[in-house]
Amino acid sequence: MNYGPLVFLAAFLALSGSWVGFVVAPNFQLSTLQETNTIGAGVTYPLGRPGLAQQGLQVYRANGCVSCHSQMVVQERTMCEVSLTDFGTNFVAVESALRGINSNYNAQVINELKKSLPKTIVFDTTKQKADATVKLINQAGAKAQVVVTPSGSDIARGWGRRRSVAEDYLYDDPVMLGGLRVGPDLANLGSRLPDVNWHLRHLYAPQTEIANSTMPPYRFLFETRKIGSVPVAEPLNLPSGLVPTGYEVVPKPEAVALAQYLVSLRADVQLYSTPFSTPPAASGSGSGISSNAPAVK
């Protein structure tokens, strides 16, 4: 029996399987994504980038920035905490409820706790346990709430509040996610470093902004010219010594566009697929992104 045609058919089916699975199916599933209203706030997301930032995306592509920077935040787990927000009036009931959670809560500790509300009373637990605890506390007349926090080393670095999802890239073309992190992830660069001028100075001479940075300078995106040779100019405010006296460094349109693009990188709204909650206020620094941006001089 000549089973050549059979081999060919089997190979064809095997290969078309992956084509259907990873080309056709994702396309049906993800290409039809629409802007959605974010959870609660009713803000439409995502919106396209402003025109200049879109041009900046092309500068980012043309210089191969994707070789060294990724644009996706990894979330390893989702942590739950319980935060006590209001002690209520029934001290005894609340005390016994708290003892039930953790036997270390004696009257002294609880009195300390009562002074500095809101306070986290249960750390790093599952959602079911957190919900049960909140119910227990509420029954005692106090108020508590569950705080849902995405976690992982990327999030601890302040690269984002949550993982990246398909919606974050809806209007980018090309989408450049990157696979190697020689430098930091840029998915939320605009939230950490919103200053366009910082980015311009950093592109011109990275080491002036971040000591010991291994990033190469992109001086060709700038023009060094005699002060006064062109009437309107917005020179960079660079440290002395980098530019000869009597000269100024002016960003070319590409540099401005690239900086605008970098500032426009923000993907931290809450979507159905990425639940999280902000810790209750007044606990001071506990909320929002703990900025771990590189040391800014």
Binding site: S18, F22, N27, S31, L33, A166, E167, Y169, Y171, V175
Partner: peptide, 26 residues
């Protein structure tokens, strides 16, 4: 096959959003 698919879906009729990356990884 793969060159045709990638050319058509990444360059000629670019897909929307992250579907591009999936085709690129594939």
């Amino acid at each position: 096959w793969i060159l045709t698919t990638a050319t058509l879906l990444l360059h000629t009729f670019p897909l929307r959003g992250v579907a591009q990356s999936i085709v690129s990884w594939w």
